[in-house]
Design a protein around this nucleic acid. Structure first.
Lengths: 106, 106
DNA sequence: GTCTCCGAACAATATTTATTGATGCGTCGG
DNA sequence: CCGACGCATCAATAAATATTGTTCGGAGAC
């Protein structure tokens, strides 16, 4: 369900899109220091709960964060593996060390 | 003008946003093999010229591609340095190897 | 059970972003 | 000079995303 419907390109779009939002980058910055519950994120980021819930879902769907239920709280933490994946995607974009190609129209 | 108004976070948003679009990723994939003029991109991607021009501008503003005027043609190529920058941004997001923090609310 | 709290999900709206077609500017060929 | 070409830019529209307030379900406290 997570895979198979995802081409490499679609996966890249999903990941980069998830990373291209200020609120979500702030969440990531907070989670670098360790697991946090939603309530603490709303306090720290001074954001409405429904808004954070939305952004956390984007991050979770992209595989950037994981959640863990604990009683009535939900704790989120970064998934370290996803960053390797992003790095691989970036590497796959780097220019090939190829001799200057023919000018296409000169 | 390009800098100084950009915080680290704003820069990350700009870069990841530029990378989170299918057309733009296709452009990047084509440019990996070397410089291309707009006319060739429109042919290969079968996209309207004004549309490509728009996306090329997004990529250029983000510093992902460079353009070079040559008579009436404009050639675009990847800027290799930007990928190092993206990698640095990713590294700066990785979880800190820190002991499990206190549960915030348990 | 009932009440309260935490958080997800929904619906309506606001805001951004992308697409399309038209226009304009510079360059080359005649 | 004139016409064709290559590309950027603009204006209008379409489409995708985000925000807000509300509702709903699960989990503890009593």
């Amino acid at each position: 369900m997570t895979a198979a419907t995802h081409s490499q390109t679609e996966r890249a779009i999903e990941l980069f899109h998830a990373l291209s939002d200020e609120t979500r980058l702030e969440i990531i910055e907070l989670l670098r220091k360790g697991e946090r519950c939603v309530c603490e994120l709303t306090d720290t980021l001074d954001a409405a709960q429904s808004r954070l819930s939305f952004h956390l879902r984007v991050l979770k769907d992209a595989g950037i964060v994981r959640d863990r239920k604990d009683g009535r709280w939900v704790h989120y933490e970064l998934d370290p593996e996803v960053f390797e994946e992003v790095e691989a995607l970036i590497s796959a974009m780097k220019p090939l060390a190829v001799s200057r190609s023919e000018a296409c129209c000169a």
